[in-house]
């Protein structure tokens, strides 16, 4: 084991490594507690997603009223809610499991652009879909 400790000492001062390799403090459980909590939350939200998909939101007045404000009707309400839950779960995975919470700007910046361009991909597709010259595009078969 002396070999390993030598490695640890050979490292440059680990100031830049916030979740660094400080193996001398705390128990495993203490370290991994946040991950276990997030994992449990992911399980819980999976159950919630499945449960939500059996509720017909378009039959519930308050939802119909609220989603009507943003122009969403019918089963689409279910899709919006389901996707919102999924996005929340993805944020949990990203923030905790992938450590985006404490990641460097060198990681953040390209990711922000990526999300921007993915959003562009979806939104501009939708934009083009929603604004055809009548009679020129047969969107539906």
């Amino acid at each position: 084991m002396s070999d390993h400790t030598a490695t640890a000492h050979d490292k440059p001062a680990a100031t830049h490594d916030s979740h660094g390799h400080d193996e001398h403090h705390g128990s495993v459980l203490e370290h991994v507690k946040p991950y276990l909590i997030v994992g449990a939350a992911l399980f819980l939200f999976t159950v919630i997603t499945v449960a939500l998909s059996y509720i017909h939101f378009d039959k519930i007045g308050i939802f119909v009223w609220a989603f009507d404000k943003i122009g969403v009707h019918g089963f689409t309400i279910n899709i919006v809610i389901g996707m919102a839950v999924a996005t929340f779960k993805v944020c949990l995975v990203g923030a905790w499991f992938m450590h985006l919470k404490q990641e460097k700007s060198s990681v953040w910046t390209p990711l922000l652009f990526t999300f921007f361009f993915v959003a562009g991909l979806f939104l501009l597709f939708a934009f083009a879909y929603a604004d055809p010259i009548p009679g020129t595009i047969e969107w539906k078969h």
Partner: peptide, 11 residues
């Protein structure tokens, strides 16, 4: 998969 699951199985 978190996106695939609801999109294909549930919604």
């Amino acid at each position: 998969w978190i996106f695939v699951f609801p999109l294909f199985y549930l919604l």
